Amino acid sequence: MADAIFRLDRIGVDYPTPAGTVTGLHDVSIDVPRTGITVFAGPSGSGKSTLLRVLGLFERPARGVLWFDGVDTGALRHSGRRALRREHLGLVFQNPAENLLDYLNVGDNLRAAAQSARRSCAPEEILARLGLGGTGDWHVSALSGGQQQRLAFGCAMARGSSVILADEPTSQLDEASADLVLDTLRSLAGQEFAVLVASHDDRLIDLGTRVARLRDGRLEGVEQR
């Protein structure tokens, strides 16, 4: 794929256990486009979260090659991988509280995210794009779970991330809060972001412009929409 932001060639991940080595990913090869929503779908234990950690450069694969925008990430030292994460990748965790600094207000969370990537941002502009206009001075705890997840995506935007990775972003939310996250993903899909999501939420999977299905650490197929 000429417009791929990630290219994976036979990626394998192993974990040592008392009973022996367990393989988390088996020779996964896939190209990830640089725009739209790519969903890694599958049941618990299918390897989708492991794959997201590999793509987020938090985990080195045991086998295979991972390219990010033409760069062989396996050839990079820890500092080089950290620089790529800081400058290009934004990660949104399952638990909204894990994504934010609860001692800062909403606007300062965005400013801190931008500063971590040596950037500046206009918090009210980002909040307006997220449907959170007027909340800049609010304490994070005043936001609902769905609003907190929206803010987490906003922090990735404030850092200037071209790729946003989200691990089960609706799994700990009620339906109304999950709707807010789905609306945010719809908005991001129309902008210049590569959004990569690991999920078994059918509504989120339906949003995917590309759906890669995994089972038992193996890529079963890819659906282009």
Rank of each mutant, 00 (worst) to 15 (best):
D31R: 04
L52H: 01
S49Y: 05
D216P: 12
W67L: 12
S141A: 15
F68Y: 13
I126S: 08
F68R: 09
T135Q: 13
I37K: 03
G74S: 12
R119C: 07
D69A: 11
D183E: 09
R10C: 14
P18G: 06
V32Y: 07
L214Q: 06
A128L: 07
G190K: 05
L196I: 10
R218L: 08
L173D: 01
A212W: 01
G160W: 12
R111E: 00
E124R: 13
V71P: 14
T21C: 09
A112V: 08
R86C: 03
N109D: 08
A178T: 04
D137S: 15
E192G: 11
Q148H: 07
V32K: 08
N105D: 14
G107E: 00
R53G: 09
V54R: 14
V92Y: 06
L101R: 13
G70D: 02
T21W: 11
T184Y: 08
F6E: 07
E168Y: 03
E223Y: 05
L25R: 05
D108E: 07
D14L: 10
A41K: 09
Q191V: 02
L55E: 01
R63A: 15
Q172F: 11
F6I: 11
E223V: 06
A142M: 14
L130T: 01
M157C: 06
R63G: 12
F93P: 10
L55T: 00
Q148I: 03
E87S: 13
R118T: 09
A156M: 08
G80F: 10
G42N: 00
L57R: 03
V92E: 05
A114V: 08
G36Y: 04
R86Q: 07
V22Q: 08
E220W: 09
D179R: 15
D72T: 04
V54N: 13
D14P: 04
D27Q: 12
F193Y: 15
F153K: 04
S44Y: 00
I126W: 09
V181L: 13
N105S: 10
G208V: 00
L55V: 02
G107Y: 03
L219N: 03
L127H: 01
L214H: 06
R186Y: 04
G107W: 03
F58S: 06
L57I: 04
T209L: 09
P96I: 05
R215S: 12
G47M: 03
Q191E: 09
L66N: 06
G107A: 03
T209E: 10
G160R: 13
I11C: 02
S120Q: 15
F6G: 10
F68N: 07
I164N: 02
